[in-house]
Amino acid sequence: MTSDRGSRFRWSKVVAFVLGLVPFAWLAYRFATDQLSVNPLDDITDETGTWTLRFILITLAITPLRDLTGWSRLSTYRRMAGLYAFFYGSLHFLAYLSFDKFFDWAEILPDLASRRFIVAGFAAWLLMLPLAITSPTFVTRWMGGKAWKRLHRAVYVVAILGVVHYLWLVKFDIQRPLIYGALVIALLGYRVWAWWKRRSVGTSAHAR
């Protein structure tokens, strides 16, 4: 039922869709008008990476926010946030392949296999791929809710890999990766706590 409601047209979804494009548009605008740094290609790589992580966090924040506020319609935005994480992640990966490596596979393949921050980032992107593919409502229906839910828990791993990727690539100042790490821990911690609470409520219900 939730998915039915989610696929219905709503203006608020149009607004959310446009909002998700704002970071991309802002980056493109600054690139076109020479307002990025004097190393704009690196800025594109950095900013698309940062927005990937932010959209993963937004995706993970929606369930706790829904539980806290009781605003059940929030769930309808989770899929869009997840798809935007995939969108920015793909741009980020493409920026690496093009501006950074110029599709020189002799350089890229060893990188993907051996440089640990690239391994972590690539693994995160690969894991997002099946989640993006199985996001349309008809695929969800075809898979069945339970299997779909189980598959989409992979986003937890994506979040952890994303933070590890960030942590491993910075030269020395790990303040920002640690902030993202703390947010991921908090959001995943909430799920553990909610699961534990549900379980204990469940068992006591059984006992009665």
């Binding site: 004097v38 190393n39 290609l41 501006f99 110029f102 350089e107 440089r115 640990r116």
Partner: peptide, 16 residues
């Protein structure tokens, strides 16, 4: 240890 030093981007240039 974490990245290659074989190439560099000259600031202002597209290629490496």
């Amino acid at each position: 240890p974490r990245w290659s030093q074989k190439t560099e981007r000259r600031i202002g240039e597209f290629g490496k």
